[in-house]
């Protein structure tokens, strides 16, 4: 096995609200290897998004260490591009193409013609070449998320961080986007860390799943080597198994009443 690209070790994350210090995750460990499609799966309150933000460098762990390529993560950076759930992650004052160019130029990765070429290429890959000069507000939700993915991929980050990117989309579009994401992955085999609360999405998109329990988030199970393009019956069986694992406690609680 190759050395892990991303190493998360004993990470406890806390954030402050008005009255409390909330522990989002407690001593979480996991490794992501190159070309993994690694899923953080769990119900709301399991700290999966907070964990992703910590990997993004937006939040410092109160305990533990997160390192990428052996270097500890201290601040946000273009080596970990984020794709957010919110549609307003595109700069509304820039066209589709300018949004991608902006990321490349602001991070000083590329500039001028090289940046424009790279941006056009990434936009074509997500099938939006026709809309390169459109402003974000004229695009549908799915198209906006495609642009965000194009922006993330154009930056060629070490790892692409996706925070429930398809959660705000309708069910049909969401399925299509999952297929497209997988097709893009087949092309360049980029590494992606993907947060979702949908078991079906986790099984479809991921090759590895980290199951988190809520309040605070702790690792419940890890599922490795999920075959690419699993047969529907096997996927359904795995979905059921994960479902049982996630909700086992609740059923026990009910039984004890």
């Amino acid at each position: 096995m190759t050395a892990p690209l991303l190493n998360v070790k004993g990470v406890t994350l806390q954030y402050r609200t008005q009255e409390h210090v909330v522990t989002a995750t407690y001593r979480v460990d996991f490794d992501v290897s190159r070309s993994d499609r690694f899923i953080l799966l769990g119900p709301s309150g399991c700290g999966k998004s907070t964990l992703l933000k910590a990997v993004g460098g937006y939040l410092k762990p109160t305990e533990g260490k997160i390192s990428l390529n052996g270097r500890q993560i201290a601040a946000p950076g273009p080596d970990r591009m984020m794709v957010f759930q919110e549609f307003d992650q595109l700069l509304p004052w820039k066209t589709v193409k300018e949004n991608v160019v902006f990321a490349l130029e602001a991070s000083r990765k590329l500039r001028g013609a090289a940046a424009r070429e790279k941006a056009a290429d990434a936009i074509a890959k997500v099938g939006l070449a026709r809309f390169a000069d459109s402003y974000p507000h004229t695009l549908s939700g799915g198209m906006k998320q495609r642009v965000a993915i194009a922006r993330g991929m154009a930056m060629e980050p070490d790892i692409l961080l996706m925070d429930e990117p398809f959660a705000a989309l309708d069910a049909l579009t969401r399925r299509k986007m999952q297929d497209e994401l997988l097709a893009l992955w087949e092309g360049t085999k980029f590494t992606v860390l993907f947060v979702t609360h949908s078991i079906a999405e986790a099984i479809k998109v991921g090759n590895r799943i980290l199951l988190l329990s809520p309040h605070p988030g702790r690792v419940k199970a890890r599922i490795d080597d999920i075959p690419y393009g699993m047969a529907p019956s096997a996927a359904a069986a795995l979905e059921k198994e994960i479902h049982n694992m996630l909700f086992a406690e609740e059923i026990e609680e009910v039984e004890h009443v």
């Binding site: 601040a75 946000p76 950076g77 957010f84 700069l91 990321a103 602001a106």
Partner: peptide, 18 residues
């Protein structure tokens, strides 16, 4: 200004006056 946009900016290593 939405937090998401700020985070997008920080992601592209923007900070301070930039």
């Amino acid at each position: 200004v939405s937090n998401t946009l700020r985070m997008v900016g920080q992601n592209c290593s923007l900070s301070g006056p930039r």
